[in-house]
Design a protein around this nucleic acid. Structure first.
Lengths: 255, 255
DNA sequence: CGCGGAATTGAAAATACTCAAAATTAGTGG
DNA sequence: CCACTAATTTTGAGTATTTTCAATTCCGCG
């Protein structure tokens, strides 16, 4: 063979990849360093740990593991889910690039849920103890961190409203509109994207069965609301979908 | 009349009541100042704003109002709820003494929900801007604040699991067990307490109708699980109720 | 090409909802 | 303090939505 005999040395890019820098990251407008001045961002860079790659279905952390790091998604997608004593599990969120994972672990010093990669993905490790030290020195970082935690609280409140008050059709519309706007914020098409999660995951998240999700997709397709091919979805009538999400329209006319 | 003619001067206690002090508050073991040393607690005392009394059904804040203060419940009970564009509302939590209100407003500088007193109640106003200043000087306070926010995130995740995965009976059992343990933490009876909220509020919170709550109460009563008189409830079989909440027992035997 | 997981579709069943009416409780004013 | 009214709660009957169970179908992958 003509390839080198020293693979470790032969891959300097991997070594570089172990160290993340926020300044060079395309997500820094959405992520933890949002709005920081260059000097402050550099200080944040100094504490950021290694990057970590995960393959599809690999677990980033598990419930009850001791808490050391927050994680910022660099690319790829994750799901977080809780399992209770009876074995029921509930997906509590899907996270994409620029979003923060692990905040629910702060209160108990242990992770409160599992986080699993939905596809090959990469995260930045953020040692929380060092982040706390930095809070005293970079007030803007602290303020933004509070906003992120608060945003997570409001996000979950929105899910509570969805689960507590909405019918299946509306839940699914809300789900699609939410993905759409998050992709838009990242510069991707708001009307054409891949569903990174299985139908089963969607159903679990929305408090519905996989069969219900399947039926909803079929109905949405039939009424010309969306086009679906495997996990690729095209929103053909975003306005009508938004109206459904808001509760001011329905897919199937009322009886 | 023999009472003084100068009521303002004659009621020095009211003047004192305008100024709250954590050190003198019976809730300081559960509330924001938890675990602070005396000196740090004194500093927190200095920024705490006035106390505010609310009568039953009075609103503490409303959605979209500008955010200035967090509130710590001194006594009484509150509910927080969200209303969406279509007018659907969802109660996102019931708060009691020692619990913090308003954290969801940090991210948007506006309140994200309404907070209403369920009975005559009192809160401490905590000016958030001043609290932020204090974070830099009292690291223990900052750490505890993060724990409180994180705890709110995990609480909401638990509600998501409840709304997404549990049947009516289990939801209601979880609700009662949760109230029970919170009262226990405050030194009250874990088996005998008042439901401060209406059946309608309970139903809204649990994603059920008022009729369902009423039927559940009747069923729980009939099987000897609880005793109910108006809003006074006695948990007759806490162990069985906990088993139901955990999903390992059922009120009515399976068919 | 065939295996296996994922997704779709159909039919029957269950859970909780809606609507309606009655009973109870709380609030108000005399 | 009582009576009256309004609000809340309970109960019943019928219904709707979603689930469950079962049978295919589709698709990726070896």
């Amino acid at each position: 063979m003509s390839s080198p005999d020293f693979p470790v040395i032969a891959q300097p890019l991997n070594v570089q990849a172990l160290k993340a820098t926020c300044s060079a990251c395309s997500m820094h407008q959405l992520c933890l360093p949002m709005g920081l001045e260059d000097a402050d961002m550099a200080r944040l860079d100094q504490i950021i740990g290694r990057r970590r790659r995960l393959v599809r279905d690999e677990r980033l952390y598990a419930m009850d593991e001791p808490f050391h790091n927050l994680y910022a998604v660099r690319f790829g997608h994750f799901k977080t889910y809780q399992v209770n004593a009876a074995g029921d599990s509930q997906i509590t969120g899907f996270q994409m690039a620029g979003e923060l994972l692990g905040m629910d672990a702060i209160s108990g010093d242990r992770h409160h849920c599992d986080a699993v990669a939905l596809e090959d993905s990469e995260v930045c490790e953020i040692p929380f103890a060092r982040l706390e030290e930095l809070f005293g020195q970079v007030p803007a970082l602290l303020r933004h961190f509070h906003r992120i935690m608060s945003q997570e609280i409001t996000r979950e409140q929105n899910v509570m409203l969805l689960l507590g008050n909405m019918r299946a059709e509306q839940r699914f519309a809300v789900f699609l509109v939410n993905l759409s706007s998050r992709y838009a914020a990242r510069g991707y098409s708001p009307t054409r994207f891949q569903l990174r999660m299985s139908r089963e995951d969607i159903g679990n998240y929305l408090g519905l069965t996989i069969e219900s999700i399947s039926r909803l997709l079929s109905r949405f397709k039939k009424t010309g609301l969306v086009e679906v091919d495997k996990r690729e979805i095209v929103l053909l009538e975003p306005a009508r979908l938004k109206a459904m999400a808001a509760g001011t329209a329905q897919c199937s006319p009322m009886a």
